[in-house]
């Protein structure tokens, strides 16, 4: 399967509620960042945490966010960033606009 996103591409973390074991922190949902690298393919945590594994793998990305995007009142310089690992099924293309 080809990756849906590539390094340098702008993405948004899907903002949805979730139950069970999820590795997408709530604080980053709905935030926009840029793909820093593709980390590889791993078992979906939502399934593997409960012993369910159908053989499928989910692609994992390392996404870089500007701290001021994550926390509007961030106290540091505009260059400060935060890298978070996000699975492909938690990412969407960032629409054009503000």
């Amino acid at each position: 399967m080809t990756p849906r996103f590539h390094p340098g591409e702008a993405v948004r973390v899907i903002d949805k509620a979730s139950a069970g074991h999820v590795r997408t922190p709530r604080y980053i949902r709905g935030k926009c960042g840029v793909v820093e690298r593709i980390c590889g393919e791993f078992r979906r945590p939502e399934e593997s945490a409960y012993g369910r594994y159908g053989g499928g793998r989910e692609r994992l990305y390392r996404v870089r966010f500007a701290q001021h995007e994550v926390w509007p009142d961030y106290a540091g310089p505009a260059e400060d960033t935060l890298d978070v690992e996000i699975y492909e099924h938690w990412l969407e293309k960032r629409e054009a606009g503000p």
């Binding site: 590795r23 997408t24 922190p25 980053i28 980390c39 590889g40 791993f42 945590p45 994992l60 390392r62 701290q67 926390w71 961030y74 106290a75 540091g76 310089p77 260059e79 400060d80 960033t81 935060l82 890298d83 978070v84 690992e85 996000i86 699975y87």
Partner: peptide, 29 residues
């Protein structure tokens, strides 16, 4: 949320021209 304040409490006060990059190990790396 406030890495610079945390670093300062560890005794490491970084000047504004040093960029801070935080890595949240949320998954497999």
């Amino acid at each position: 949320r406030e890495p610079r304040a945390v670093l300062a409490e560890f005794g490491l006060s970084l000047p504004g021209d040093v960029t801070v990059r935080v890595h949240d190990s949320t998954a497999d790396m």
